[in-house]
C-alpha cells in the first residue's frame, strides 16, 4: 500500500517516494491518510472526525469512503 510510504509534513504536503508524485492535503485529508497508513479502521476514523467536526458519524463515514476512492484513483490505495 503506497499510502504507508507517503511522506506527509506538518503543512499537509505529501510526497510519494515511489512515484515522485506530490499532493497538497487539507487538515482532514492529512488526518485520514495518517490514520489509514497506521491501519485505523474506517469506522474509527469516522467516529474521530464526527467528534472533531460538526458532522454525524454516518456523514463522516461516507466522506472517508469517498476519500478512499479518490486515493485509489491516485494509485495510493489498491
Amino acid at each position: 500500500m503506497r499510502i504507508e510510504n507517503l511522506a506527509v509534513n506538518k503543512n499537509g504536503f505529501a510526497f510519494d517516494p515511489t512515484s515522485g508524485e506530490t499532493f497538497t492535503l487539507n487538515e482532514t485529508a492529512k488526518e485520514i491518510i495518517e490514520d489509514l497508513a497506521r491501519g485505523v479502521e474506517e469506522k474509527e476514523i469516522a467516529k474521530k472526525l464526527s467528534e472533531e467536526y460538526d458532522v454525524t458519524q454516518e456523514e463522516a463515514l461516507n466522506d472517508v469512503l469517498d476519500f478512499k476512492e479518490k486515493l485509489k484513483l491516485y494509485g495510493l490505495l489498491p
Binding site: F15, G20, E21
Partner: peptide
Amino acid sequence: KKMTTTHLGKIWNGVTIKH
C-alpha cells in the same frame, strides 16, 4: 521523476524517487 520539462522534453525540475 521529471517534474517539469522544456518543450524538447529535457528535464528542468525533478525529484529523486525510490521505485
